[in-house]
Design a protein around this nucleic acid. Structure first.
Length: 927
RNA sequence: AGGCUCGUAGCUCAGGGGUAGAGCACUACAUUGACACUGUAGGGGUCAGCGGUUCAAAUCCGCUCGAGCCUACCA
């Protein structure tokens, strides 16, 4: 049989996906009956403009592991793929493309522009779908969805109208984060706080009268006041000044340009009766403008920061906005949507950019002697996540979704355990956000997205409806004129408005489809830490609201993928690792294995070459072990027709019983680990079983039988067993490493068309054999010891050595007898002699193995002081433990079932210990 | 400012009340038939520090010190 010496991933990987897809293996209907258990997942939809990054690779690999495993286990598995229209991101991609042709979207107009985006999607989209196929993802492409599909758009309109009818959606004037870069409102979550080196300006506002000529001596008075305050041991700065030029208050601000919109001065209520008592009855006069500012008392004001006086600009700062509402202040707009000074500002500043205005205003105030200090100051400033521009808080008319009432059931559902977070602590993040939730601004001033289903009558009345016809009906029903001209709302919805419906909108909601019935709620959501707010929490709220049931039973939060140095990957740092490069370099299965092996929920995962190399070596190991089997077992492969071959496990010997029991144990442990989402354990268990147990021990032990010239019954049985083990291992590995396992499985006797459709091995009690595991474990330890002695004393392989072994029991003697030839061969001993007791041979090396199951004497060497010391230490430890257990047994009060169990376990351990202690004593005496 | 996570071998990290583990790196040896993407054997750790609980603590609890992340209204 032709089989390359090393695994060549590229050639193999190209072969299988088209076959899997064309045969619809990944459809829930593909194989199982309607009564099979259901396992469903919806993929977190990547941006339609996107390409596969390392985070996806991890996320999708884990989902694929689950999907393939459950499918093989016999579940009806639906893993639904799709993409998100990603409003702003996509609009920007297409805008840039048009800009390259010298076209601006305004030139095209809304309809033409949106048409262009659809065209773009048809022709240039689909990158990520191709890459998902490269990764081997077993998604059902026939059910692929896009958030702007007709069905999903219906769902969006339906949800919007219902929420509006219930009064949960409202339109109103509110402070929003305005992105001057994108020219739209953005949500709080789309604002990124970044530390910025700015200035803190101390400005003086006169009390009771306007300042028209430079105020003399202010700076000196301020310095003197603060000096006096410092000497008096008081913290903070003195904010109230009495000077020959009159009385002043001092405010501190990072944004002097907003002063034009000030409508009040705020102080802490304690200051109102304390150091600034009486000031409340007076009026500050806004410099440059001349407006009277009232004083308000608000807890928000920190007495220790700045001067204790805060200028309040209700129209341009979120806190001031809140204060403005609390104290019924005037909202004075002075900055426009283009971030230029506008509204009620003095003529000379009108139209200036906000930063130019800042400079001009400071210069003018300084001319009046009102700038008392400028300090360097680092603070956090909100930036637009997409455009990078500094966000301008503005009051504008937007659509909002009331969140509090929606949040309560979502909190309760997780508290009640209807949805579990893995790892558990991530639920805290979820709670924390939902418990402090604010209304969500859902409207965006963009063209690409779901248009808000609202119409305006000429008189400005708003009608929300599923379409224009319904809008007219509604108008008529409320006694209006249904024939008037209606203007459609131009805003679209935040992208996340549609994504939050994903778990049910993709299944056909609001229609009661069969899919919706079968697959909602989904079983698991695998997603990243950073979209718990954006997405997970909102899906929970919507699922509970519209389906009356949580959207998923478990939320698995993946690790965060970092670069090899443990740094976050970012384009600006240039440390982004492209998964496709990794596929190319190490093979897709190796990358998948590495990711699974390193996937600890909620922890970090750094992309180290050594991990990838190790994974690649593992794929090669699998390849070569299979190569060994295919090259050496041809006769059996030919003569042994499936399906009967699997059952021919008659008369297994110790090594056979051992490996079968090991396989069985690993199978069981893998199942548990998968059930509990401990992916790294799955990878670790199978790696070590395959490499250590199967390759290094079982295949090595079997070689004499496999490679014998003349066929023997024993040889045939061993070969069949090896094939059995290999085939099972491949199936166990398949969810992690789909390509290589399919390739090799196809070359072995097998049932069915594809390993994808085969059955996942499950543990069988009949195969577990603790004694065999113990006995062979002992033999392994013995052989290792013998090899070690030879290596330690630098004895060449040709130096003949004879070993005398004194087994501690009849059972051990039997095991050693059975394995005698193996011990001789693998331990490189000339003879192996079993004796009752070791003589006090002088020239002898001794070792005690497997917790005192035997004593070993190797003629020709001396080495036992060390052994004796170790034994003494071990004995002391065991005796201490025994004492502890005795005490515990004596003290135990039987108040609970658990306590009884503890005692039972302790007794067992105690017996075990006593046994080991007596064995150790015997060994020490022998030494 | 709060909250969360983490400090274990040279590196990257598992584990977790009862003998300290893996991968990589390192050392020595081996090698014509599955595999150098190999085999065999080995060296290397006061499990961040200090207290407490316990017969027993790397593990549980408290504090301290470091690292990272998230949330936040210090103008």
């Amino acid at each position: 049989m032709e089989i390359p010496k090393a695994y060549e991933p590229k050639e193999v990987e190209a072969r299988w996906y088209p076959l899997w897809e064309s045969r619809h293996y990944f459809s829930p209907e593909s194989k199982h009956g309607d009564d099979a258990p259901v396992f469903s997942m919806v993929i977190p939809p990547p941006n339609v403009t996107g390409y596969l990054h390392m985070g996806h690779a991890l996320n999708h690999t884990l989902q694929d592991v689950l999907a393939r495993w459950r499918r093989m286990r016999g579940d009806r598995v639906l893993w639904l793929p799709g993409t998100d229209h990603a409003g702003i991101a996509t609009q920007m991609v297409v805008e840039r493309q048009l800009a390259a042709q010298g076209i601006h979207r305004q030139d095209l107009g809304r309809d033409k522009f949106v048409e262009r985006i659809w065209e773009w999607k048809e022709h240039s989209g689909g990158t990520i779908q191709k890459q998902m196929r490269m990764l081997g993802e077993s998604v059902d492409w026939t059910r692929e969805r896009f958030t702007m599909d007709e069905g999903l758009s219906n769902a969006v309109r339906e949800v919007f109208v219902r929420l509006y009818d219930e009064g949960l959606i409202y339109r109103g004037e509110y402070m929003v984060n305005w992105s001057p870069g994108l020219n739209t409102a953005i949500s709080d979550l789309e604002v990124e706080m970044k530390p910025v080196k700015g200035k803190l300006y101390y400005l003086a506002y006169p009390l009771d009268r306007a300042v028209t000529v430079p105020a003399e001596g202010l700076a000196e008075a301020w310095a003197a006041a603060n000096e006096a305050r410092r000497e008096a041991g008081k913290e903070g700065l003195e904010g109230l000044l009495s000077t020959p030029a009159g009385d002043f208050i001092i405010v501190a601000t990072t944004r002097p340009e907003t002063m034009l919109g000030d409508s009040a001065i705020a102080i802490n209520p304690q200051d109102g009766v304390g150091r600034y008592a009486g000031v409340g009855g007076r009026k500050a006069i806004l410099p440059l403008v001349g407006r009277e500012l009232t004083f308000v008392e608000d807890e928000l004001v920190e007495m220790n920061f700045g001067t204790g006086f805060v200028k309040v600009t209700p129209a341009h700062d979120p806190n001031d906005f809140a204060m403005g509402r609390r104290h019924s202040l005037e909202f004075i707009q002075v900055i426009g949507k283009d971030a230029k000074m506008a509204g009620s500002v003095p003529e000379k500043y009108r139209g200036l950019d906000r930063y130019d205005a800042r400079a001009a205003i400071i210069a003018d105030l300084d001319g009046l002697g009102l700038v008392l200090g400028i300090e360097d100051y680092q603070h956090n400033v909100g930036h637009c996540q997409r455009s990078g521009k500094v966000v301008e808080p503005l009051i504008s008319t937007q659509w909002f979704l009331k969140m509090k009432d929606l949040a309560a059931p979502a909190i309760a559902a997780v508290r009640e355990g209807k949805t579990k977070f893995v790892p558990e602590h991530t639920a805290k993040i979820y709670f924390n956000w939902l418990e402090n939730i604010e209304d969500w601004c859902v409207s965006r001033q963009l063209w690409w997205g779901h248009r808000i289903p609202a119409w305006y009558t000429p008189s400005g009345e708003i009608v929300v409806a599923r379409d224009e016809a319904e809008a007219r009906e509604r108008l008529a029903a409320s006694g209006g004129d249904s024939g008037v001209a209606l203007t459609e709302e131009s805003d679209v919805l935040d992208t996340w408005f549609s994504s939050q419906l994903w778990p049910f909108s993709t299944l056909g909601w609001p229609d009661e489809t069969a899919d919706l019935k079968s697959f909602y709620p989904t079983t698991v959501l695998v997603t990243a830490f950073d979209i718990i707010f954006f997405w997970v929490a909102r899906m929970m709220m919507m699922g509970l609201k519209f389906m009356g049931e949580v959207p998923f039973r478990t939320v698995y939060i993946t690790a965060i993928v970092l670069d090899p140095e443990g740094q976050k990957m970012s384009k600006t740092k240039g440390n982004v690792v492209d998964p496709l490069d990794m596929f190319d370099k190490y093979g897709t299965d190796a990358v998948r294995f590495m990711l699974t092996n390193a996937a600890i929920a909620g922890q970090n995962l750094s992309m180290q070459d050594s991990k990838l190399e190790s994974a690649r070596n593992f794929t090669n190991k699998i390849w070569n072990a299979s190569r060994f089997v295919l090259l050496n077992c041809e006769d059996v492969l030919r003569s042994n027709e499936p399906p009967g071959w699997e059952t021919t496990l008659a008369e297994p010997e110790l090594a056979d019983r051992w490996i079968l029991s090991r396989l069985n144990r690993v199978t069981r442990e893998v199942e548990t680990a998968l059930t509990e989402f401990r992916f790294h354990e799955v990878a670790g268990l199978l790696y070590h079983f395959f490499w250590d147990d199967f390759c290094d021990w079982y295949i090595e032990l079997s070689k004499p039988f496999v490679t014998e010239k003349e066929p023997t019954p024993r040889g045939e049985a061993v070969k069949r067993r090896i094939i059995y083990l290999l085939e099972r291992s491949l199936r166990l590995l398949h969810p992690m490493m789909p390509f290589i396992t399919e390739e090799l499985w196809q070359r072995l006797p097998h049932r069915g068309e594809s390993i994808c459709q085969s059955e996942y091995p499950s543990a069988e009690d009949g195969l577990s054999d603790d004694k065999a595991e113990r006995d062979l474990g002992m033999v392994i330890e013995l052989i290792t010891k013998l090899r070690s002695i030879r290596a330690t004393f630098h004895l060449s392989p040709s130096t003949p050595l004879r070993v005398r072994i004194a087994p501690a029991s009849e059972g051990v003697r039997e095991a050693l007898q059975v394995m005698e030839s193996h011990i001789r061969r693998l331990g490189r001993m000339e003879t192996v002699e079993l004796v009752d007791q070791l003589g006090a041979t002088r020239q002898a090396a001794r070792a005690v193995t497997a917790a005192g199951e035997m004593a070993v004497s190797l003629e020709g060497l001396i080495d036992f002081d060390k052994e004796r010391a170790r034994l003494e230490k071990e004995l002391a430890k065991m005796e201490s433990e025994q004492a502890g257990l005795d005490k515990r047994l004596a003290n135990q009060d039987f108040v609970a079932r658990a306590a009884v169990e503890v005692v039972a376990a302790s007794r067992e351990r105690s017996t075990e210990l006593a046994d080991q202690i007596s064995k150790l004593r015997a060994m020490m005496e022998a030494l």
